Amino acid sequence: MTLQQLAYFVAVADVRSFTRAADLVGVAQPTLSRQLRALEDELGAPLVDRGGRNGPVLTPAGEAVLPLARRMLADADSARTAVAEIVGLRGGRVRVGATPSLCIGVLADVLRVFHAQHPGISLELVEDGSPPLVRTLSRGELDIALVIVPPGGVDPALHITPLLRERLSVASPATQPPPSGRGSLTVRELARRQLVVPRQGYDLREVVQRAFADADVAPRYAVQGGEMDAVLRLVEAGTGVAVVPDLVFVGRPRLRRTVLTPALYRTVALARRADLKPTHAVRAFQETLLSFLAELSAGSGLPGDVQVLHRPDH
């Protein structure tokens, strides 16, 4: 039995819906259901009747466990509060940097979860390309940043924790026929289509241009420039297609994903200055991020071809 399982059970009891309970605690629904089953197996009795006409209904065993679960979670929260006051998590600041595609794909949810867990900590977000973020981090103007690892590696003065390996795919409007009947596009085939690319400074733009150069073909641009959100909106509107990381397809049903061959991958890492000891607040943010990614991976909440490279220590 874990506190996390008890929290999932209480959430289901409060909202009487597995879907809304999963949203409330910030995990994928399969993860919540699996953990609740494990709790029931541990206790030796079902806690929730899943066949109710109006949603999940607590069994007699669930009714008996619910007040005990609430008390245990309250005691755990009191313990966290007492320790947080000692180690400084009741206040402080975390300055986070991230690329626009990561802000769209995963970071917004992580910031939401972290703020709920540590409402006394001030969060500051800087959105930019990886090279500018690395420079800002090196100057001490950021505490931590999610960056793309370049082919030659990053500055050795930074401490790097690889987080994700994700594929780059072709995004096209879902309202139009797929760009390829076989579900994939070569770089040469992509060169015959109108392309939307972000502004200079995006590592993604440089990767795409290098792929065209390696294939000895020239791209045809529909629109150049703009931030990632603008690129995706232009694609949704039918202006052209774009090469984007698989994470951005989350929650965008108006986009169609077509794999690019040969495959292009990139590695996302968490970076901070190696010469500075991270504060308790920064460590807490890192733990929240790693736990969130682990939950997504366990619940099959990661889109396309995305692999989690680092797991939380606990």
Rank of each mutant, 00 (worst) to 15 (best):
Tyr202Glu: 12
Leu293Cys: 07
Val94Arg: 06
Ile121Leu: 02
Gly52Asp: 08
Glu287Arg: 09
Val241His: 00
Gly240Cys: 12
Arg70Met: 04
Val83Thr: 08
Val10Met: 01
Ser101Met: 05
Val197Asp: 15
Ala298His: 04
Glu63Tyr: 10
Gly153Asp: 03
Val113Pro: 02
Leu146Met: 12
Leu190Ser: 06
Arg182Glu: 10
Ser78Trp: 07
Leu158Tyr: 03
Val244Thr: 12
Leu232His: 06
Ser180Ile: 13
Val96Leu: 08
Ala237His: 08
Asp128Thr: 09
Ser17Cys: 04
Leu142Val: 08
Ala38Arg: 15
Pro131Leu: 05
Ala191Phe: 15
Ser138Leu: 11
Ser122Gln: 15
Arg311Gly: 02
Gly88His: 00
Ala269Lys: 11
Pro156Leu: 04
Leu290Cys: 05
Leu204Asn: 00
Leu168Glu: 11
Leu73Ser: 00
Arg139Thr: 10
Val170Gln: 05
Thr239Cys: 12
Glu124Met: 07
Pro177Phe: 10
Gln5Thr: 06
Thr99Phe: 03
Leu89Gln: 02
Val248Asp: 11
Pro262Leu: 14
Leu247Pro: 09
Gly153Met: 00
Pro253His: 10
Ala61Lys: 08
Pro30Ala: 13
Leu39Gln: 01
Arg254Trp: 12
Ala11Met: 04
Leu232Ala: 08
Leu58Pro: 04
Leu133Asn: 02
Ile104Leu: 13
Glu236Val: 06
Val243Arg: 02
Pro131His: 04
Ile121Trp: 03
Gly52Met: 02
Asp214Gly: 00
Asp77Gln: 05
Gly44Leu: 02
Arg210His: 07
Leu232Tyr: 05
Thr161Ser: 08
Ile86Phe: 10
Leu146Pro: 03
Asp14Pro: 06
Leu293Thr: 07
Thr31Pro: 13
Ala284Val: 00
Thr267Cys: 06
Ala116Thr: 15
Leu276Ala: 14
Gly251Val: 00
Leu255Thr: 11
Val250Tyr: 15
Glu295His: 14
Arg256His: 13
Leu289Asp: 10
Ala242Asn: 03
Val113Ala: 03
Arg192Asn: 15
Met228Pro: 08
Arg205Trp: 03
His314Phe: 14
Gly153Glu: 05
Arg93Ala: 07
Asp203Gly: 11
Val65Tyr: 15
Pro156Cys: 12
Ser180Trp: 05
Pro56Ala: 09
Gly301His: 05
Gln200Asn: 15
Leu247Lys: 01
Arg70Gly: 01
Arg167Gly: 11
Met228Lys: 09
Arg167Lys: 12
Ala269Tyr: 01
Gly183Trp: 03
Val170Asp: 05
Gly55Phe: 11
Val306Ile: 08
Gly105Ile: 04
Val149Met: 01
Ser130Met: 00
Gln307Ala: 12
Leu24Thr: 14
Arg53Ser: 09
Asp203Ala: 15
Val207Gln: 12
Ala45Ile: 06
Val268Gly: 05
Asp49Glu: 09
Glu287Tyr: 08
Leu163Cys: 09
Arg283Ile: 13
Arg20Ala: 05
Pro219Gly: 10
Arg71His: 15
Arg193Met: 07
Ala145Asp: 10
Ser17Phe: 01
Val154Glu: 11
Leu185Phe: 01
Gln200Trp: 11
Arg20Phe: 07
Ala69Gln: 07
Ala294Gln: 14
Arg80Tyr: 01
Arg16His: 10
Val134Asn: 13
Arg50Ser: 04
Glu189His: 11
Leu195His: 04
Gln35Pro: 04
Val147Gly: 01
Ala222Met: 14
Leu255Asn: 08
Asp41Pro: 03
Glu206Met: 08
Thr161Ile: 10
